[in-house]
Amino acid sequence: MRQFLSAVFLLVACALPALAQNSSIPPEEFNNTSRLSGDSINVCFDRTSLGLAFDQDVARAIGDALFLRVEAIEGFGGFPLNGDALLDEVTLAMTNTCDVFMGVSVSPNSPVSDAFAITRPYATFPFVLAVADPDWQRLGDIPKSRKLGTAMASMGEMNYITWAQQQPENERWVRLPYADFDLMTTRVLDGSIAGMILWQPALARILASRPDAKVLRVIDSAPVPSSETRVGALVSSRNSFLRAQIDEAIDAIVRDGTIAGLIEKHGYSGRAGE
């Protein structure tokens, strides 16, 4: 199995974009060579990923399932809120370095190009509403005069905006976008905002790192419908064999409870697979 995979990698690992001045990346930036993967795969991670440690564990589990050594590579980070140049760097990383990129959002609005394919999701996690006030049990309990924070550009934020746009103005909460979740937490704790809508793994990280955040509670987001993000990995579209193998490995580790165990290990609330 291992030898067969290696041979296939040799044949298909090269997924170069067209080398002309028709993209925003100078062609000199691309490696015009195939990677010799041997019995390992290069697995990249966004260093700012909210579920980085979880994704690293999942990558190791996928590697084990495929009898491949996982070479973990810290990917990129530090992008603007508008995503400028992000896809340039995804293209560069996937062409030059990464066989697989972990922790990718599996959604209809995925910004990645057709050159790359997203695997099936290995986990699904909800967006949650966290508050400090013990009297509130649901979003509807929060006075409309108070403000909410949302994780900038997240599916949870989109969900809230879509709901809010359907309500009369006096029935909405004023919402402020945050890219820094630590700052958003501080603002919940100091009362500047009543609560925050963010991805549960992000909240888990805050709860694990900030003792002062222990007072935060997750309450029902009603009347705003709940939302969630599915998490998968990115592979080259040309490497359909690798994608199929990884999909099969994900299926296997979802079925055998590996993912569920990792979700519990990291203190996440969500589910394995879709």
Binding site: N109, F125, A153, S154, M155, E157
Partner: peptide
């Protein structure tokens, strides 16, 4: 305006 997460839950794009 389109929420476009790349890495899950992260803020990388709000416009298409």
């Amino acid at each position: 305006p389109t929420q476009t997460e790349f890495t899950a839950g992260n803020a990388v794009g709000a416009m298409k």
